[in-house]
Simulated scan of single mutants.
Amino acid sequence: MSRRTEEEASVAGAEAFRGAVFGAAKWGLIAGGLGAVGYFLSPIYRGLTVQFKVYIQLSGMTFGGWIEADRRLRAYEFHARREKKRQNDEAVWKRWEGMIEQQERREQEQKQEKG
């Protein structure tokens, strides 16, 4: 694995980790709010064991972390691919500019030789 690939993988992993933390916090708040609503409105939810309530809360956090990590990783990959394509297009453009400049110089040299 090349150094560049290792760095790209490391940056992608860090972005996925940030997404997972954000998603777990966001969905944890949502699950906690729903748990509070369930506690006040549902005798069934109130009757659940603490362990099962914690399981429900952690399941929401895990799901949210997974979804957000995947979303951020896909967005990172999209932007990385787009940046690579832009760099490749820029390199092709510079090559074409160089070829055109060489052609213009040759034409000027030919004109000077004739003139």
Rank of each mutant, 00 (worst) to 15 (best):
A25C: 09
F52R: 10
A9R: 13
A12H: 07
F22S: 04
A9V: 05
E83A: 14
R82E: 15
A69W: 02
G115N: 07
K85L: 15
A91M: 11
K53Y: 13
R18K: 15
A24T: 01
A36F: 11
D89N: 14
Q103A: 13
T5C: 00
G32T: 04
R74V: 09
P43K: 12
G38S: 12
M1R: 06
K53E: 12
M1N: 05
E107D: 07
E77F: 09
N88S: 07
E113K: 13
F40T: 13
I56W: 08
A24D: 01
Q112N: 10
Y39V: 12
F40A: 06
Q112Y: 08
G33Q: 07
L73A: 03
E97M: 12
A69F: 05
D89G: 13
A91G: 04
F78E: 15
G60H: 02
F17V: 02
E97W: 11
A14F: 13
D70I: 03
E83R: 13
D70Y: 09
F22E: 04
V21A: 10
R86H: 07
L41W: 15
R46Y: 08
E90G: 08
A9Q: 10
E113T: 07
G23A: 01
V11P: 01
A69C: 08
M61N: 01
G47Q: 13
G115M: 05
G98P: 00
A24L: 02
R86M: 04
A24E: 01
A12Q: 12
Y45S: 08
Q102E: 14
R4D: 14
G28I: 02
G65I: 00
E83F: 09
A80G: 00
T62Q: 06
E6T: 05
A31S: 14
A31E: 06
Q103D: 11
S42W: 06
A31Y: 04
L41N: 09
E113D: 10
E109V: 03
R3S: 05
A9D: 04
R74A: 13
V54G: 04
I67P: 00
Q57G: 08
W27F: 12
I67E: 03
Y45Q: 08
W27Q: 02
P43C: 06
K94W: 06
G35H: 02
Q108D: 05
V92C: 00
G47W: 06
W96Y: 11
G13E: 04
E101Y: 08
Y45I: 09
G28Y: 03
V92P: 00
E101S: 09
R81H: 13
V11F: 09
K26D: 00
R3N: 09
E83D: 06
A75P: 01
E113R: 14
A12P: 03
G98A: 01
R72W: 02
A36V: 15
E113S: 10
Y39E: 15
I44G: 08
I67M: 05
L41C: 12
E15M: 04
K114F: 14
Y55T: 12
R74F: 06
K111H: 11
Q102K: 14
Y76E: 07
F52W: 15
E107P: 00
S59D: 08
T5E: 12
K84V: 01
Q87N: 10
Y55W: 08
L48I: 09
Y55A: 11
G33R: 11
A20V: 00
R106P: 00
A75R: 15
K84C: 00
F22C: 00
D89W: 14
G33A: 11
V50T: 15
G32N: 01
Q103M: 10
Q108L: 11
G65C: 02
R72A: 02
S59N: 10
M1F: 07
V54T: 10
